[in-house]
Amino acid sequence: MMAVNVYLWASLKKFTNDKDILTIEATTIGELVSVLRRDFPGLKPFLDSGISFAINGELSNPNSNESIPDESEIYIMQKLKGG
């Protein structure tokens, strides 16, 4: 299984052993979120609060079935509120 770099905002570091870049083994967004929930339970309220992803610069709603391309750069952000 490949490893991808997941970038979190610094205010979440307190839940991830002071790291804002995590290397996670996952092939889909669903797997990625499962690993985050398992390894960093403190992130649960953030993950449940409504999030969006940027995968290689592409902003989107979370899709647990979405495949993660090799060497992806993934940012997890709060869900966008548009007007």
Binding site: Y7, N56, G57, E58, E73, Y75, M77
Partner: peptide, 15 residues
Amino acid sequence: AVAEGSKSSYGPKFK
């Protein structure tokens, strides 16, 4: 100014 490939101030690169 940012352009294609620039890293945005909040992280992801711009297309």
